[in-house]
Design a protein around this nucleic acid. Structure first.
Lengths: 72, 72
DNA sequence: CTGTAAAGTGCATTATATGGCATTATTTTA
DNA sequence: TAAAATAATGCCATATAATGCACTTTACAG
């Protein structure tokens, strides 16, 4: 999953929960500015920042072997 | 998956491939110092750094809904 | 053991993520 | 369509990730 996909997934998850960026920022402890920057596809969050956001959204990072059939 | 788990998985993957940190650093474009720091459990890599490393290891980040049954 | 390769660490510098504040743009709602 | 809520962006200070270099420690082959 590329950066763009991660952003999209997280943003969609937040919207599905009907929660504002401000709320997520408060609950996660991540700065509102940082969250906005991330959701608008800018920036390069640290793993910790990403995990804080995911945590509040009831999600987590996982690793998988790249799917060779869907290369490129 | 928590930070510790990510580190462990990545390190084990690298070792399973019989590749040195130096090689991964060169192939990924991530500084050797950064990789060392990461594998020794220190630091807080950016998503980009993480993805560069995973890429070389044939892996990728994915997101999943947290498993409630395995809480704590 | 001994030498060598691989991994870990201290220090300094540079690049950049974080985050607050004010302002603007966009979306939603009444 | 006006007002209110949400989201995006510029400016900017601070914290810290990224990285190179030199050196130490650990692992391993001979």
């Amino acid at each position: 999953m590329h950066f763009t996909g991660l952003v999209k997934t997280i943003k969609e998850r937040r919207e599905a929960l009907h929660v504002t960026q401000e709320t997520i920022a408060e609950l996660s402890g991540v700065g509102l500015r940082t969250l906005k920057q991330f959701e608008s596809g800018k920036g390069n969050p640290t793993l910790l920042t990403l995990q804080k956001l995911l945590d509040v959204l009831g999600m987590e990072v996982c690793l998988k072997i790249k799917d060779l059939t869907s290369n490129q």
